[in-house]
Design a protein around this nucleic acid. Structure first.
Length: 269
DNA sequence: ATCCGAACCTGACGGC
DNA sequence: TGCCGTCAGGTTCGGA
């Protein structure tokens, strides 16, 4: 699924197409996603789209009287298509827009969600989230502070979303490789210099990935159907046994907190 | 308070 | 060919 760069890519592409348009109606073919889809989807009629924002990996679509909170889960897609596009097996939600475009949500695994609320930033799923990694609030000083007393290995710790959001399984491995930190290091053992480098690296990595339209492993597509091209720049993720690009040591596969981790045992200590 | 495993689903792939 | 086990970009939840 999409991590932050993939969701941001979608958000940037869809925003100019959607904002100012009107939702005429929604067609819901499968209401059972991660949670049952918002009943408000069934009551739309000439609803203006006021804004489209991203918070962590959530897309927030503002209408006149509330917001849809959209999550793509592991395999969700959101695409703007011509109105007459034939539907596929996993095309669960269509929004028919006044301009003639179709906003289509597809999600084979159905881990995605469409919820409704009046204030997304106070919603229970969002209210506890940490800072945005691309914001000024996320920096070495903040990260260094947050690491104190944290005994969990740094890789799963980065993915928790309570301190900093948006770093998923791919970019957690990639960021740690770039800074030369072992994914097994207890978070509290990173000194301030390491925290500074890690924060800066995370920002740079995510920005590069956004510039490339995200990473496509299998499912991910940008809003126009194109894959993301950052996959070609991944240095450790999905490369077990292949040589480290720096020192040629075989990349190691490791299971951490039920997720796959990839790292170079020589470069990352 | 913290951590781990299970849970929500379908599909692709490799081994036998 | 086909069945089975394993894995997949996320995140919440319950129980230890």
């Amino acid at each position: 699924m999409p991590e932050l760069p993939e969701v941001e890519t979608i958000c940037r592409a869809l925003r100019p197409r959607l904002v100012g348009d009107y939702i005429q109606a929604a067609v819901v073919r499968q209401a059972q996603l991660r949670w049952p889809v918002a009943p408000e989807l069934f009551q739309l009629s000439r609803a203006p789209i006021i804004s489209l924002q991203r918070r962590a990996k959530y897309l927030l679509m503002q209408l006149a009287n509330g917001w849809f909170i959209i999550h793509l889960g592991m395999s969700g897609r959101l695409q703007s298509l011509p109105m007459d596009t034939p539907e596929g097996k996993h095309d669960h939600i269509d929004l028919q827009l006044a301009s003639g475009q179709l906003l289509r949500f597809s999600d084979p695994r159905r881990f995605g969600s469409w919820l409704w609320c009046t204030d997304p930033y106070q919603h229970r799923l969002l209210v506890h989230l940490g800072v945005e990694p691309l914001s000024l609030a996320f920096n070495g000083a903040y990260l260094g502070q947050a690491l104190c007393g944290q005994k969990m290995p740094i890789k799963p710790w980065l993915m928790k979303n309570t301190v900093v959001v948006g770093i998923g399984n791919i970019y957690a491995s990639e960021a740690l490789y770039r800074v030369g930190i072992s994914p097994c290091t207890p978070a509290e053992q990173l000194d301030q210099g390491a925290a500074d480098r890690l924060a800066a690296t995370i920002k740079q990595l995510l920005e590069e990935a956004i510039a490339q339209g995200g990473s496509t492993l299998r499912d991910f597509r940008q809003a126009d159907g194109q894959p993301g091209y950052f996959s070609q720049r991944l240095q450790v993720y999905g490369r077990p046994g292949e040589p480290c690009l720096r020192c040629h040591t075989p990349i190691v596969y490791l299971r951490q907190a039920q997720r796959s981790t990839f790292y170079c045992p020589t470069c990352q200590v």
